[in-house]
Design a binder for these strands. Structure first.
Lengths: 219, 219
DNA sequence: CTCATAAGTGAGTGATCACTCACTTATATC
DNA sequence: GATATAAGTGAGTGATCACTCACTTATGAG
């Protein structure tokens, strides 16, 4: 599955730099089994014994690599959380924007398409993240402080950027950011979590959604 | 005056007493303690022993009234789920609409304001519902079959109603429904779950949101 | 009052939980 | 090949889980 290959990328670039370790074969199986179980039954309804069984590994092996069950959860969820909205936190966003996108619409389309690929790749982990973030302070505060606020200021800058170019109509910046974010978030939530089995015409639906945003922010 | 009355017609259900008066005093305390714990720590991380402790009740008393812990959860969550979107499922919606609301905008404003009151009243239970619905088939299938589909067809009818009156511009009905629903859902989610501690000017924010929807569906 | 029924109790139960530890096996370095 | 270190094992542990049951107390009808 795509999720296996991509997992290696994601975890090796993050965990290995921090701890100088690579994932062993059994460790990979543990992580995969945990992702499967956590997303199916929820974190606290998943037992380490069944994770071990699914991974074809002794239960003790899990605790060789992760001191606690929660540490296993965080090892899975943290890198995805960091990367989920990473494209917004690039440096010199202004330059990139003015060089590559003439209008807000083009920029939005590009970035949403990009994030759709990421979500499709890591859907199970995104589900786990959404489920568990209310109950784990480390996750929530890290998301708010290091990601949420950062992303908000960038989004704000983007909106202002296009407002100054006259490509976006005047409206309180805060509202423009919120409406853009919730509309896109609502689209992705519907597309991948609520009604993933609908017949989705992704290209068409994204176009409609972004048109809707642009129209909504006119006049 | 007339508007007040019609709103009442439209929206009044017995939402004040969701659990009836046949609950004993201790049973009420159990339900309240369970709501508190489920919303704070999640359903499966909440133990019946601590629920009993918080309710100042013997643990056995819980199981006098509810055969299992899950039955307790469903007793809490089901009535709120049924009432959450109930205003959409009234009979003769067409007549009520044409009598009381000249445009989609007015209708949306009225119904969202009404649902905000309901959500504020039952916020903890709404949170529990959102958290647990992915993991309990009875909840999910009941929501989809008895509520989701019903609400969708009504919303569809409403959109068509206003489209025929020429008050709404032509756009695939399905898209209009989805965009309206996710934008409002996104607003409510942000308002009450994600950033409940913001300085919200509810009146202003709702107006902005609905204007955004109306503009988005023009031309 | 009597008595049937419902409400309430709390010690007890087997199952399961996350986690430990003494131990074996594999790997790498010299 | 000796040695050290890391990876892997699985039986074992106390804690906690949802739930039971024999029992007491409260309620209400005849």
């Amino acid at each position: 599955m795509g999720e296996q290959e991509s997992m290696e990328e994601l975890f090796s670039t993050n965990e290995n730099e921090l701890y100088g370790e690579e994932l062993t074969a059994k460790q990979k199986r543990i992580v995969e089994a945990a992702i499967q179980m956590f997303s199916e039954k929820g974190y606290s309804s998943s037992s380490t014994s069944e994770i071990a069984k699914r991974a074809n590994v002794a239960e003790g092996t899990i605790f060789r690599h992760y001191k606690t069950k929660k540490e296993l959860l965080l090892a899975i969820v943290t890198p995805v959380m960091s990367n989920l909205l990473a494209p917004f936190i690039i440096r010199d966003l202004d330059k990139v924007l003015s060089q590559n996108y003439q209008c807000y619409e083009d920029f939005l389309t590009a970035i949403v398409k990009n994030r759709q690929v990421f979500i499709e790749k890591h859907l199970s982990i995104v589900k786990i993240l959404l489920q568990e973030i209310p109950f784990h302070d480390e996750l929530r505060s890290q998301f708010i402080d290091r990601i949420g606020k950062e992303v908000y200021t960038r989004l704000e800058a983007i909106v202002i950027h296009f407002q100054e170019k006259g490509k976006l109509v005047e409206m309180p910046t805060q509202s423009a950011v919120r409406l853009t974010a919730t509309t896109i978030g609502g689209f992705l939530l519907t597309r991948y979590i609520l009604l993933p089995n609908n017949d989705w015409n992704d290209e068409e639906e994204l176009k409609t959604t972004i048109h809707f945003i642009m129209n909504g922010m006119k006049a």
